[in-house]
Computed example of a mutant assay.
Amino acid sequence: MGVVIPLDESKNKQASIKPLVDLTRADMERVNQLILAKAGSDVQMIPEVANHLISSGGKRLRPMLTIATANMFGYKGDAQVKLAASVEFMHTATLLHDDVVDESDLRRGRKTARILWGNQASVLVGDFLLGQAFRMMVEVGSLEALDVLSTAATVIAEGEVLQLSVAKNMDTTEDDYLQVIRAKTAALFAAAAEVGPIVAGTSKADRAALKSYGMNLGLAFQLVDDALDYGGKAADLGKNTGDDFREGKITLPVILAWRRGNEEDRRFWREAIEGGKNDDAGLERAYGLITKYGALTDTIARANHYGTIARDALAALPASPWKSALMEVIDFCIDRVN
């Protein structure tokens, strides 16, 4: 089931994060060592739960942004390593909490921690990782970096609560949805990209440019994720396709199909999302309506819009392999639907 939406067929090659991976490899090895060390605890369940998710094959894109945006300005310290590990711990904590709130069974192709250890353990280990993240931020000694990341943590929590308040509510608007993903997803991308230039001591203009890059990259990334749930493969998404529908999540493809549908279509969406009638037959109909009303195509168009803003944010920065790699990351995030 599902429909894959092609993007620009004139592209000659698939975009990749390999240039960014190669450039950040040495520092990311140090980040990964630090992550494993800081995930340790005398309480046996903590490293078990933490390492289940940490070792599950995520791309570590957010910490790579921190490494790249520090090194592109010639930074020669180790603060970026601690901040990158902090960013990854914040992200991991968010995933642990998300899976509890969403009652998710699968994450990156594996059973979620909540299924294996229970909701309480997942929430508390997430809290432990947040605590470790803030300890590493303090070790760096940059109040500006601490301010950026602690503010992001607050915004993410606000986004979680906002998503809860609009869950299974078909009256949710596109603006509501964008407010949720700006807080839940894009805020951490923005913070990850901003703390690099902070520790590198570069100009406020460069810092603002990379914050904008991260924010808009994060918006594009989440829009594509939401499209993939209705038009992708589980291998690309890291969870079962259709999970958003089964969990009653209001995402942009649903909002657009609802808004463009007739009375009968809207009755279906209310019964499926608000009433919980989200079996396989309902999912098949949802795919059909989303395709009929061009909701996937337009969701990807919006992702491209934010990708363009991210490219524009980088445009004024000096040419370098780092800048080129960050540019390609934008295409990689969007091209996942091909």
Score class of each variant (00 low, 15 high):
Glu144Asn: 05
Ala26Tyr: 08
Ala79Pro: 02
Asn51Trp: 04
Asp127His: 10
Trp258Tyr: 15
Thr173Leu: 04
Ala39Glu: 07
Lys323Ile: 13
Asn240His: 13
Gly2Tyr: 13
Gly109Cys: 10
Met28Arg: 07
Glu264Pro: 05
Glu158Asp: 13
Asp105Pro: 00
Arg311Phe: 08
Glu263Ile: 11
Phe73Gly: 11
Arg311Asp: 08
Leu53Tyr: 12
Ala186Gln: 12
Ala26Thr: 06
Met1Glu: 12
Thr69Ser: 14
His52Met: 14
Tyr177Trp: 09
Asp335Cys: 06
Asp236Ser: 09
Val87Trp: 02
Arg259Pro: 02
Ser150Gln: 02
Lys277Arg: 12
Cys333Trp: 01
Ile17Arg: 15
Asn304Leu: 14
Thr297Ser: 14
Ala191Tyr: 13
Ala153Tyr: 01
Trp269Leu: 09
Ile300Thr: 13
His305Met: 14
Glu328Pro: 12
Ala79Thr: 00
Asp312Gln: 15
Phe245Asp: 10
Lys59Pro: 04
Ala316Lys: 14
Pro19Phe: 09
Met327Gln: 11
Lys277Gly: 02
Tyr293Gly: 06
Ile67Asn: 04
Ile300Asp: 09
Ala193Trp: 07
Ile181Met: 03
Ala316Thr: 13
Trp117Ser: 02
Val148Gln: 10
Ala209Gly: 09
Lys76Arg: 15
Gly118Met: 01
Asp175Tyr: 05
Val195Asn: 06
Val155Asp: 07
Lys292Gln: 15
Val21Gln: 11
Gln132Val: 06
Ala234His: 07
